[in-house]
């Protein structure tokens, strides 16, 4: 997993609430047995019409946001299915950070396993980012170590919360399973305790 700390990028404003993982990655793309290559299917049915032509009204087809690494959406992002293909698609497309007022639990957890930083900001902060970001590109700098999101245009800095464990995992790009193996004795002791 690629570590993450400071990222500066234009934000992509996706002004929708309750974006479910069926929209992020549709079921027809879940049959593949690989972890990579899902980026071209991200938000497929919003990005493309039934003939496969890009939908000019959808934000991912707006050339102003082509190089963006930061996706901003409204509340309860990632609800529904547990499919990790959703963060795989987001990452493969080029986003490293998703900012929203809130996330569904499974999606939130899946992000950390893939080197994506999900950030919760206040609703008023998100509202401003979404409307300003649509009007003209807004550049943000995210600093994980300091837990801040800074707007380049207004120089406002927003603080965000993250639990220390997830923060360390992302900053270091650690493989969680290797870490857990350090607790093998405790796991074995637990198993012995439960069977006796």
């Amino acid at each position: 997993m690629e570590p993450i700390n400071i990222i500066t990028s234009t934000l992509t404003p996706l002004d929708r609430k309750n974006v479910d993982t069926d929209q992020i990655i549709s079921k027809e793309f879940l049959k593949r047995i690989e972890r990579t290559g899902f980026g071209k299917y991200l938000f497929y049915h919003w990005r493309f019409d039934s003939k496969g032509n890009p939908n000019p009204d959808f934000v991912l087809n707006d050339p102003r946001f082509e190089e963006s690494k930061i996706l901003v959406a409204d509340e309860n992002f990632g609800c529904g299915s547990s499919r990790e293909h959703a963060p795989w698609a987001i990452l493969d497309y080029g986003f490293r950070i998703v900012i929203a007022p809130g996330f569904a639990d499974i999606f939130y957890s899946n992000c950390f396993k893939n080197g994506i930083l999900p950030i919760r900001l206040q609703q008023t902060e998100i509202d401003a980012l979404l409307s300003d970001g649509e009007e003209q590109p807004v550049e943000l700098t995210v600093n994980l170590e300091q837990q801040t999101v800074t707007r380049r245009d207004t120089e406002e800095a927003f603080a965000f919360e993250i639990d220390p464990y997830s923060k360390q995992m992302l900053l270091n790009g650690w493989d969680e399973i290797s870490l857990t193996f350090q607790y093998e004795d405790e796991i074995t002791a637990y198993e012995n305790r439960m069977t006796n």
Binding site: N110, T180, E184
Partner: peptide, 14 residues
């Protein structure tokens, strides 16, 4: 759970 967690449970049962 997601697939990374599936892998974690397969390897560690936790």
């Amino acid at each position: 759970i997601g697939t990374s967690e599936v892998e974690h449970v397969l390897s560690t049962q936790t």
